[in-house]
């Protein structure tokens, strides 16, 4: 009898403990999901709002009962956005200038980082702090000397000296040309280059030196070692830098707006979208806000697709490199 009572007591205690465990697990899960939903909503609600507004007609914007779901999808906003932004031309300009210079940076920053990570040279102590400065000094502080430099481009004053000798102004005007972006990218001092170099350095320091030493023993020089050994071993870092570089260049509009008078990329068109809507068809366009929102969607769509395709690799690479952009 006593044994049975003891057994029941144990079972009941076990059950209670089990229930408590399950209950606490459920509570934790509910809390976790609630938090995730809350954070997810905070992050995604602006995107949902843009999608919703991009499909609203002017009547929907004026109708206070319409909040999230439009009465009917007004696709004309997208057609108007394509026209107002001159989308395909602007997309091509985006690919030719900012995106291409972003890709150039992926290569040049890798080369610079390899030198910093692997070679000891006397100037390193000066150059490394300078590298940090390129991250610390904001673009708005440097745009003026940069603009002057590109407007009267001169190789260390050499062209001016030659020009003075022959009585002609030989300085080159690079404003309104892609070189304002390509040149700094080629020399590793482009948009956010400092940060990309740091990402590479961080990663390259983790690659065993023995691999390179083996290559040197086999007679490979620094360039060959970099191409044959370092590049194939750094796919994770290259992917991280590529994605960050392309996306940040894609979004860049401040310098593009200053350096380019025509052939503007998408980011510049978007930064001025309300003005463009008024100028290109203010009285015929149904909803200015709707078209502006559709333009936002068209702007982020290529990047979104690019990110979704590379999402898994990107997260994996961010884990390995240990830097979040």
């Amino acid at each position: 009898m006593k044994l049975l009572a003891f057994k029941n007591n144990v079972t009941s205690n076990f059950k209670n403990a089990d229930y408590k465990k399950i209950a606490s697990k459920v509570a934790v899960s509910i809390f976790r999901y609630a938090m995730l939903i809350a954070v997810g909503y905070t992050v995604l609600s602006p995107l949902f709002q843009i999608i919703s507004n991009s499909l609203k007609s002017d009547a929907d914007f004026m109708n206070t009962s319409v909040t999230w779901i439009p009465t009917a999808a007004f696709w004309q906003n997208y057609a108007d956005a394509l026209f107002v932004m001159d989308y395909w031309k602007a997309l091509l300009n985006t690919l030719i200038v900012p995106v291409l210079s972003g890709l150039i940076e992926v290569v040049s920053c890798g080369v610079v980082a390899y030198a910093f990570a692997r070679f000891k040279f006397p100037e390193r102590k000066i150059l490394y702090p300078l590298l940090l400065l390129t991250i610390l000094v904001p673009v708005r502080m440097t745009f003026l000397p940069s603009f002057v430099n590109y407007r009267n481009f001169d190789f260390f004053g050499i062209t001016k000296v030659i020009g003075d000798l022959i009585g002609k102004d030989l300085t080159i005007n690079l404003i309104n040309t892609p070189f304002t972006f390509y040149l700094p990218s080629i020399f590793g001092v482009g948009f956010q280059s400092g940060l990309f170099i740091m990402i590479y350095i961080q990663f390259l320091k983790g690659i065993p030196k023995e691999l390179e030493e083996a290559a040197w023993i086999d007679g490979a020089g620094p360039i060959k070692t970099f191409i044959r050994i370092i590049v194939p071993s750094s796919s994770v870092a290259i992917l991280t830098v590529s994605i960050l570089s392309v996306i940040w260049h894609w979004n860049e509009y401040y310098l593009m707006g200053l350096y380019f008078n025509e052939n503007q990329p998408l980011a510049v068109s978007l930064s001025n979208i309300m003005n463009l809507i008024s100028l290109k068809g203010g009285d015929t366009i149904n909803s200015h806000t709707g078209v502006a929102m559709a333009s936002c969607m068209l702007f982020i769509l290529p990047v979104l697709v690019f990110y979704l395709i590379l999402q898994k690799k990107f997260i994996k690479s961010i884990d390995s490199v240990g830097i979040v952009g």
Binding site: R140, L144, R151, N152
Partner: peptide
């Protein structure tokens, strides 16, 4: 020559003056 974004008009003027355009 126009700035596509009115917010950077001041920068356009100052940079054009600095570059003696």
């Amino acid at each position: 020559k126009n700035t596509p974004n009115a917010g950077t008009y001041g920068e356009l003027i100052s940079s054009s003056l600095a570059a003696k355009e």
